[in-house]
Design a protein around this nucleic acid. Structure first.
Length: 490
RNA sequence: CGGGGUGUAGCGCAGCCCGGUUAGCGCAUCUGCUUUGGGAGCAGAGGGUCGCAGGUUCGAAUCCUGCCACCCCGACCA
């Protein structure tokens, strides 16, 4: 474990990388743009998965699995879809290798595929080609399917968790008999993402609709949740798309409705990815390392014994075991780190780096006094408590920490949200302060593009739940129905 | 694809300009002793096709040519 990590204010980019690597979350692999997710990082992802999976199932969705490969011809069936993804597709062209005389292995050119296969960047096409077989009548609807999978998008530049060539995600693909039902589903899933982000990740997000420029390739409308990171940049953390009948038309998926007429099926798709890991890291962590919300921490409490001799450790263990039983009863996850290869100070630093919410330390003097020292990761506050009943204090504290880091993130977002009314003001804020900028926009793609070219800020979304305050576009002065959120984005 | 840079021990780097003992340093690793309430100290040890291929030279990590890989900035990115 290397000492020290770069400070946020010195180099935010390095700080992020330091945390990912030194906390043991992930590292770059020998494949360009692809990462190795290490056990501790994967444990956090598994917690996220577990929770989301439960939420999906509670709302009637089922898991299934579709192929990694997509025939090239499927791809071109939806024009916007292919336009959006063509430039970043990995393509499989052969199915065999052979040995050359010099011992090297080469592609066997005689084993060329009749039709190339695309490694899925998203699964709408393979899934809708399947749904065609499954759907005949309104009685077959709705289909509410989710899949946990990996996808590949050949990105030019990658960053651990935030943008990798291969990433893990879930993608929901639903089919409905009416437009309203599909739209309701789209919004329902957006709400689930938002609830997950806020209640589990302790990360405030703004729900809203994407502009034409920013929407999903093949969607009628895209909705997103947007979070603000500590460097003032926005991170799109989840998207839910209303696909209308676009994919049903592309794959000729029709059903007979109650009145006996043939109609195209309505669709939604929605997804979150390992990018959420990036969001989680950047939302709460500090210069000493990761800060995890208790609800997603693989280890909620770490217990560190402080001892000189083996006999002391034995005494400590007896006391600790009683506490561990109580923690287990309460469903609190813990780790008792009795390694004698590292000293206590080293362990303290290590678990701070790993973002463990609560640390207990117990040594000779605690044994004598019947006490235990408790330190919380979010505030660094240290206090000594009676051993008896410590599990209750821990349970309450875990909830308090969850709440505290959420409130801290809310406060940060509030301090970094700006309302501006002129383009000059806009440029100044975007350049000097960053953050979310609420401004009026005339609703045209031209204006959005102009602003993006000139300031690098894009419209994150047209937020829901904000007063529909009318105004004039900061660039053109034309009518605007409501303010939209601008920010520089990841 | 354009601009810049880097490849030397597991990791991070120095050495290269100006060729010349046995290629160094920090961290990590291993052994021993002492330590253990905030990243231990001392002593010792192990670990190298100097990115690859060719060339110049008595002699190349160092100079030359070609190739490869990676990184950064830009373009690109639901």
């Amino acid at each position: 474990m290397a000492k020290g990590i770069t400070k946020r204010k010195d180099n935010y980019y390095k700080w992020y990388n330091d945390i990912v690597m030194k906390a043991g979350l992930a590292e770059n692999s020998s494949v360009r743009g692809c990462m190795v997710i290490k056990p501790y990082g994967f444990a956090i992802w598994e917690k996220m998965k577990e929770c989301l999976d439960k939420m999906f199932k509670e709302t009637g969705h089922e898991n299934a699995y579709f192929p990694l490969f997509i025939p090239k011809s499927f791809f071109s069936k939806e024009a916007n879809h292919v336009d959006g993804f063509a430039k970043e597709c990995a393509v499989v062209t052969h199915y065999r290798l052979k040995n050359k005389e010099d011992g090297t292995i080469v592609v066997d050119e005689t084993a060329k595929l009749e039709e190339e296969l695309i490694i899925r960047p998203t699964s709408e096409t393979i899934i809708w080609s399947t749904y065609k077989k499954w759907i005949q009548s309104y009685r077959d609807l709705p289909i509410l399917i989710n899949q946990w999978a990996n996808v590949v998008r050949w990105e030019m530049r990658t960053r651990l968790f935030l943008r990798t060539a291969e990433f893990l995600w879930q993608e929901g693909h639903t089919a409905h008999a009416s437009k309203k039902e599909a739209l309701d589903e789209t919004i329902q899933m957006l709400n689930i993402y938002s609830e997950f982000a806020e209640k589990w990740m302790a990360m405030p997000v703004i729900k809203g609709k994407k502009t034409e420029n920013e929407k999903f390739a093949g969607a009628i409308e895209t909705f997103s949740i947007e979070a603000l990171m500590q460097d003032g940049k926005a991170l799109q953390s989840g998207t839910s798309h209303f696909l209308g009948q676009n994919f049903a038309k592309a794959f000729d998926v029709k059903f007979t409705n109650k009145t006996g007429k043939l109609e195209y099926v309505w669709a939604s798709s929605w997804g979150v990815s390992t990018r959420l890991m990036g969001a989680l890291i950047m939302a709460h962590s500090d210069d000493k390392g990761l800060v995890l919300p208790p609800k997603l921490a693989p280890i909620q409490v770490v217990i560190i014994p402080i001892y000189r001799k083996k006999e002391e450790l034995i005494t400590i263990k007896k006391v600790v075991n009683k506490i561990l039983i109580k923690l287990k009863e309460k469903g609190i996850s813990y780790k008792f780190d009795e390694r004698d290869t590292h000293r206590p100070g080293h362990k303290f630093a290590e678990y701070e780096l790993k973002g463990v919410p609560i640390r207990l330390a117990i040594g000779k003097r605690d044994i004598k006094n019947g006490t235990i020292e408790l330190a919380r990761r979010d505030t660094y506050e240290k206090k000594t408590y009676e051993q008896i009943g410590i599990e209750n204090i821990i349970q309450e504290l875990l909830e308090e920490i969850q709440e505290n880091i959420y409130l801290k993130a809310i406060k940060f977002r509030k301090e970094n949200s700006h309302i501006v009314n002129t383009y000059d003001e806009f440029k100044k804020v975007i350049n000097e302060k960053q953050g979310f900028v609420f401004a009026h926009w005339d609703g045209t793609s031209e204006t959005e593009k102009k602003i993006k070219n000139e300031t690098k800020a894009s419209i994150r979304n047209i937020p829901f739940g904000y007063p529909e305050e009318e105004g004039k576009c900061i660039v053109t002065g034309k009518y605007s129905k409501q303010r939209v959120i601008f920010a520089k984005a990841y």
